[in-house]
Write a protein that binds this DNA or RNA. Structure first.
Length: 882
DNA sequence: GCTGCCACTTAGCAAAGGCAGA
DNA sequence: TCTGCCTTTGCTAAGTGGCAGC
């Protein structure tokens, strides 16, 4: 089997590419004289229209219809921004790749497939499904019935009604809502429950599990502790009686066709929290070497930049350019003297230094001050951090209005550095139920609008000025609405699991379709499925140049005979996607066809395909299916598959966790979730190595003690004479010197502490001589160590016995193993971000079931926040399968 | 049928918090 | 108890995809 079938087998090289720097000229413009043509400020080359008729000499392609009846061949035009490959100066990476000319005339016939490649239409060639062992879900199928397949969505009629933006009530939220204890006739729990049905093995309770004593099988040494911990966590979390446990409160008789667009019946909240008004610090910036006085409004913007000095943002020419443009404007508006016209003459370091000082001060505040800050935060959380949805208390997520700042766009975002203005209450619309008291707007202000839209989950919204996009205040991740949404997402992915073999057969057949549009759709789907690519919607010219599958361009794809595909592009967040994989021969042929001359840099690879068309097709294959479901499905499937393969049956908890993280990592790699290697990574690794060496040293000493106690064991137990690896004589000598030095330091501290105590008790202090005597003991020990090194005999403590030493040896071995495991985990994890896939793509029920099955405490894999977010998933039993 | 708007999910980074070792 | 490092959380940017309106 070729590894083309397995997303995991994809070879990948990852890298991160970010902005390059161009100097900013005095007038605030970017000097491009030395840069390549890749600057975001330049126009992207408009793609040339490709010839309509494409002739392919390969027999399959000969009679492709040139004008798809289903898809009018109108070449789409993209924003006219010239886009050059971001990795122009990284040519080494591509040097060995097949040049675009490989896509020209090929002597290969369709039968010249690589070894093991079958006809793409055959079953054996159906990807993943056929190759991976797909275990049918053990559930009773209700998921399909309930999740996404069973309901027909009734179109929502938004119940919009505007009201006066004046606040009409001071009544505190809790007081008002507390009278509304009974759930409304159509509560979320009910309406959502119609889609979220009970699966017998899904809702078996943890309580039953907790009382199950059958798990008294042999445990690792650390496990009794863990068991207690599990119990403790379970108990704590069970004790928090959850009135929002919608997943337990499902009614089989609920009407499946019920309108699921209505999200709530009543919604009460306290509005949003605005950032405090700006308080000027009075620290002056320098202009042309001289301190200048700034109006508070100007000082605020200067401070935004000063706070970012020496960061990548402040070094980024686009950021500088955009900041300076806005800064100049605001400085002029406030008649700053002298007029600020040159970025190069601006010196923000004094403000930066002031912030550093403030940071230091903040570090050194008293306990009481810290507590006061904490209390203040708690009070705000109490006021704004909760709301009442259908009478039930729920957490609000981000109730703070985003403070003014400089927009920190990622990658080569053309607007990065622009001034993000302070949001006024007059821009903020609140969404709450008609019966809810309207929160008071800040003094002297009023709200933009008050709406009562029960089809929306947001509590507040406003428009930001930089990208003209909407911002929202939503419920927290652990809320019922978010939980139900998560549940639905994973149920759709599970539904895909049942359909995926058919869908794959379908798109593999479509790869040879006569219509170009269908071929492109099938090829794109193949890539989305195999490489977990994002859909790739079209983007505007005022956004960073990043792509997904449907927006891949000519220059992102390179082919290498016989069937190797290289992909290299910037994906979401300008994270580089760089992978090489073997692809199905027909996919290879198709991409070669799509890349045909006169296609050139800047041209779309899939010039007839849009994400909307792709998703429309997917909807026809399975209800609720979109491109992104493949990512969720493949992530969860891969995770479960890897967990099953990697988890050691009789391993320790540490070993099982290593397996868990490895499975998680496979998913993170599949989804291309990257992170920068932390600055201190190498030093941290060295530290762990030292720790292991120290353990080995202990082991060596114990072995020698045993042999000193029982010299006869030399023959019986030859392993006692074997030297420890990595323990050179020089290292041992140095280590022992360090040990003794630390010992002396300890003795001195002990002596000082004792004297301090005696002083307080008005007793006679210890003398210097006594200290010297104590230090002499250390000297004697050091001499002894030198002797031990020479002779190889170690006497150990007076009470030392062979049995005791053996027991200690065992313990040290365990510690070495655990530390090694942690070290391997850390090294393997340095470039990969596991969190994103864990939070968004991996069905949490897989983890919950795994924890139960392998007796691993849940809190080892999910933080409190995640346990809260996934509480709906924690009730599965050990045999639950995705 | 196309386009842009809107609502929501997904994403990495940086600050805050918490914990282990000194 | 303190310090420094690692983990967790908060923030907000950047995606996806449905749908209204032209």
């Amino acid at each position: 089997m070729s590894d083309v079938e397995m997303p995991l087998a994809v070879k990948h090289e990852q890298d991160e590419t970010h902005v390059s720097s161009n100097p900013v000229t005095d007038d605030g413009n970017i000097d491009n004289s030395n840069s390549d043509s890749d600057t975001p400020l330049q126009k992207r080359k408009r793609p040339l229209a490709r010839k309509n008729v494409i002739k392919e000499e390969d027999e399959d392609d000969e009679d492709i219809e040139s004008s798809d009846s289903g898809a009018p061949f109108v070449k789409r035009t993209r924003p006219a921004v010239k886009r050059k490959s971001y990795n122009d100066d990284d040519s080494d990476n591509n040097g060995s790749y097949g040049s675009p000319s490989t896509s020209k005339k090929s002597s290969r016939s369709s039968t010249s497939l690589s070894d093991g490649q079958n006809d793409s239409s055959s079953d054996s060639d159906v990807p993943l499904a056929a190759k991976k062992k797909i275990v049918p879900a053990k559930s009773n199928g209700s998921a399909k019935k309930n999740g996404t397949n069973g309901t027909s969505r009734t179109k929502a009629v938004p119940k919009y009604k505007e009201e006066s933006s004046e606040s009409d009530s001071d009544t505190p939220l809790a007081k008002k809502t507390s009278t509304k204890k009974t759930a409304p006739a159509k509560s979320v729990a009910k309406s959502s429950a119609t889609k979220v049905k009970k699966e017998p093995d899904t809702v078996s309770s943890h309580k039953a599990k907790a009382s199950d004593n059958s798990k008294s099988k042999k445990r690792g040494k650390d496990e009794p502790d863990n068991k207690d911990k599990v119990k403790k966590v379970k108990k704590e979390e069970e004790e928090e009686e959850d009135p929002n446990a919608w997943w337990l409160n499902q009614n089989d008789n609920d009407n499946e066709n019920e309108d699921d667009s209505v999200k709530w019946t009543t919604l009460h909240h306290n509005g949003v929290l605005f950032p405090p008004e700006y308080v000027p610090h009075g620290v002056k910036m320098k202009y042309d070497g001289k301190p200048i006085t700034l109006a508070p409004e100007v000082e605020e913007v200067a401070s935004f930049f000063a706070a970012l000095l020496y960061t990548e943002h402040a070094e980024n020419p686009t950021f500088q350019h955009n900041f300076f443009k806005d800064f100049k404007k605001i400085a002029k508006a406030h008649k700053t003297v002298p007029e600020i016209t040159s970025f190069a003459k601006c010196d923000f370091t004094q403000i930066y230094d002031y912030f550093q000082l403030e940071k230091e001060k903040k570090k050194n505040i008293t306990k009481e001050q810290k507590q006061a800050i904490k209390d203040e935060k708690q009070a705000l959380d109490d006021q704004y951090g909760i709301c009442y949805l259908d009478g039930r208390k729920e957490k609000v997520g981000n109730y703070r209005i985003e403070p003014p700042s400089l927009f920190r766009g990622r990658g080569k975002h053309p607007k990065t550095g622009c001034l993000k203005l302070r949001v006024q209450p007059e821009q903020v619309t609140l969404n709450l139920s008609k019966d809810a008291p309207i929160p008071k707007a800040p003094a002297g202000h009023k709200w933009a609008k008050i709406v009562h839209d029960d089809t929306k989950t947001w509590l507040a919204t406003w428009k930001e000025n930089v990208n003209d996009s909407f911002k929202y205040v939503f419920l927290a991740a652990g809320s019922s609405l978010k939980g139900q949404s998560d549940f639905k997402k994973f149920e759709t992915a599970r539904a895909l699991k049942k359909e995926v073999a058919n869908i794959r057969r379908g798109y593999m057949a479509d790869l040879k379709d006569k219509k170009m549009f269908i071929r492109q759709r099938a090829t794109a789907l193949y890539l989305i499925d195999r490489l977990a690519l994002r859909a790739g919607n079209e983007k505007g010219e005022d956004e960073a140049d990043t792509v997904g599958c449907c927006s891949l361009r000519y220059e992102h794809v390179t082919l290498e005979k016989p069937n190797i595909l290289h992909l290299d592009f910037l994906g979401k967040d300008s994270i580089r996607f760089q992978k090489t994989m073997e692809v199905d021969d027909q996919v290879f042929k198709n991409i070669r066809l799509f890349k045909r001359e006169p296609a050139q840099e800047g041209d779309d690879l899939f010039d007839r395909l849009k994400t909307s068309e792709l998703n429309k097709h997917l909807q026809s294959l399975m209800k609720g299916l979109t491109a992104k479901v493949f990512r969720t499905y493949n992530a969860s499937f891969t995770f479960q598959d890897q967990l099953q393969k990697l988890t050691p049956k009789n391993g320790t908890v540490a070993e099982k966790l290593l397996a868990y993280n490895r499975a998680n990592r496979e998913v993170a790699v599949l989804c291309n979730h990257q992170r920068a290697v932390s600055k201190g990574h190498a030093a941290q690794m060295d530290k762990i190595s030292d720790k292991i060496r120290a353990f080995k040293y202990q082991k060596m000493k114990l072995k020698r003690t045993i042999l000193t106690l029982e010299p006869k064991l030399k023959k019986k137990r030859p392993e006692l004479r074997e030297p420890e690896s990595d323990l050179e004589d020089d290292w041992i000598a140095e280590y022992e010197t360090q040990l003794m030095e630390k010992e002396r330091e300890k003795v001195r501290l002990k002596w000082e502490k004792e004297n301090q105590k005696r002083k307080e008790n008005k007793e006679k202090p210890m003398t210097e001589k006594e200290l010297k005597d104590m230090l002499k003991e250390v000297d004697a020990r050091e001499k002894e160590l030198v002797k031990e090194r020479k002779t190889g005999t170690v006497h150990g403590s007076k009470s030392a016995t062979v049995e005791k030493c053996d027991a200690q040896l065992l313990k040290v071995d365990e510690r070495i193993a655990a530390t090694r495991t942690a070290m391997v985990d850390k090294e393997e994890n340095k470039q990969t971000a596991l969190g994103t896939s864990k939070i968004n793509y991996i069905d949490p029920r897989i983890s919950a079931a795994w924890c139960q099955k392998h007796d691993v405490p849940l809190e080892k894999i999910f933080t409190k926040t995640l346990r809260d977010k996934f509480k709906w998933a924690m009730t599965v039993d050990a045999n639950w399968e995705f």
